[in-house]
């Protein structure tokens, strides 16, 4: 694995733990951003009908739950591979859930005002872009494959 190569001996293990803490802080930062974006999307349902609120509540709950589980797994990871695995798997999940913003929110059934639909669509796009970035960077830094 990329991270392990050239990191042998006491200095190597020092470098490795520095690298792990760097990867961990990156993962925590990204997950925090995603949680904030999800909560913003939930706020857009204020004043809309219960169907839109239910949809957004389900999507946001799924994303927040994924973020919590990912953060717990990342914090508990003792080696770069486990850390990378937790980040990649969690990122896939919240990226996938965010596709729901693109597919569902514009549906007439939910009766969301166009401006709210547009905001949620934008949030979905941002989360997907952040997801791709997180996946590629984690792969580069930890060597964990994306199909882990």
């Amino acid at each position: 694995m990329r991270l392990e190569s050239g990191l042998r001996g006491p200095r190597g293990s020092e470098k490795m733990s520095e690298k792990i803490s760097h990867v961990k802080s990156f993962a925590l930062r990204m997950n925090l951003i995603i949680a904030v974006l999800a909560i913003i999307s939930l706020l857009t349902t204020i004043g809309t009908n219960y169907r839109a609120q239910a949809l957004l509540a389900v999507i946001v709950a799924a994303i927040i739950l994924t973020v919590i589980v990912t953060v717990i797994r990342v914090k508990g990871a003792s080696d770069p591979l486990l850390c990378g695995k937790a980040i990649v798997q969690g990122t896939w999940f919240w990226t996938s859930f965010s596709l729901s913003y693109l597919i569902m929110t514009g549906s007439p059934y939910f009766g969301m005002p166009m401006i709210n639909v547009a905001i949620n669509f934008l949030i979905g796009i941002i989360i997907i872009i952040l997801g791709i970035y997180t996946l590629l960077r984690t792969k580069k830094e930890t060597g964990v494959m994306l199909s882990i």
Binding site: A62, W92, T95, S96, L99, L146
Partner: peptide, 14 residues
């Protein structure tokens, strides 16, 4: 599957 699977489940149930 990672990209679409979780979304399917969420939306199927919803």
């Amino acid at each position: 599957s990672y990209l679409l699977g979780p979304m399917f489940l969420l939306l199927t149930y919803f």
